[in-house]
Amino acid sequence: MRRAFCLLVLLMLFGTPLAIYRGWLPVPPAWNPWTPLDVRQPPNLLTGYKLMRLQRDPELCRMALDSSVLRYTAVADSEPAAGCAVENAVRVQRAGVQFSSAFLASCKLAVAYALFEEHGLQPAARQAFGQPVARVEHLGSFACRNIGTSQRRSQHASANALDIAGFRLKDGRRISVARHWEGAGQEALFLRQVRDAACSSFNVTLGPEYNAAHRDHFHLDMGLFRLCR
């Protein structure tokens, strides 16, 4: 009896994924680990895995990006500065919002941003102010440098990070991390909601509560480790 139970468990653990992969067991695309990530669908338990697959598969990346409203151009693999290679990257021109400038981004960073805007940033803006964000003001993505004074390369060194300093609403009002984070008004509440939403989309989200170096922006990256501060 116990042996039969163990065989049944093994069949479920290994047989079910194989059946889904082969198409023998139909499941909704959002719950199929091998279907492309659709940015329009709400994130679920498989979203992180699907994001992870994108960086080594440019075609899968393109399919995910094309499910979003991002306007982008593919960028050839290069080493813009010695020791800082950029692979499977795109130049993001705009999304549902305008950006203060176009920026270079690894594929999975660009897709993570699209998820963040669609399911985190804009819902938070509509809840707080009854209107969407029209412009995102950032401090850049690619910078060939280490983390602080350490010997470890920053995620910026591979265009795998983006620093956001503020947001401009549709009516022209500007929400600044530096100016409004410490406040007690609707702007401060909105920034905390944005920080929390970013933690769901990016592997690392660092803001003013992390250290003084981040007092005026949110650092968002898709590194190997998860950290939300």
Rank of each mutant, 00 (worst) to 15 (best):
I20P: 10
A114P: 00
P28N: 02
L60P: 12
F167M: 08
A102L: 04
D221Q: 06
W31A: 14
F129H: 09
A178I: 05
M222D: 10
L104R: 02
H138I: 10
R91V: 07
C61Q: 14
G48A: 15
L162D: 03
Q98R: 08
R229E: 05
R145C: 09
A81K: 12
L11I: 02
V75W: 08
P123M: 07
G15S: 12
G207E: 07
S101G: 13
A114G: 03
P36T: 09
A110L: 00
S154P: 07
R173M: 12
R56D: 14
G96I: 01
Y210A: 07
L8M: 12
G130W: 00
S200H: 15
A110S: 03
F202E: 03
T149V: 12
L8V: 12
S154D: 13
A143H: 07
N88E: 08
R173N: 05
G48I: 02
L37E: 15
Q41P: 01
A197Y: 15
V177Q: 03
G148P: 08
G23N: 00
S67I: 07
L54P: 11
C61R: 14
A213Q: 14
V75P: 12
F116V: 06
V75Q: 12
R229D: 05
Q155T: 01
V90K: 08
N44H: 03
V39F: 11
A81L: 04
L191R: 03
V204E: 15
S106T: 09
I175Q: 01
L11C: 10
D196T: 13
V136S: 05
L18S: 13
R145I: 05
L189V: 14
R56K: 10
P132A: 11
E118R: 15
P58F: 11
G130Y: 11
L18C: 13
F218I: 06
A95D: 15
H180K: 02
S141M: 11
A112I: 04
Q186K: 09
M222K: 08
S101Q: 14
Q55D: 15
K108M: 11
G223K: 04
V111K: 06
V204P: 12
I147M: 10
V133L: 00
C6Y: 14
Q98V: 03
T47K: 14
C107G: 14
R53K: 13
F167K: 05
A114C: 01
F14P: 03
G185L: 05
V9Q: 00
L162M: 13
A105G: 09
A198V: 01
P33N: 02
L65W: 02
G166Q: 11
L115G: 09
R215D: 07
Y72R: 05
C84N: 03
P36N: 07
L70G: 13
F99T: 00
I164R: 09
L60Y: 08
Q131Y: 04
R94A: 15
A165S: 10
V133I: 13
P123N: 06
L65Y: 11
E118Y: 04
L37N: 14
E182M: 00
D196P: 01
A4D: 10
G183R: 01
A112K: 08
Y72V: 04
A85L: 01
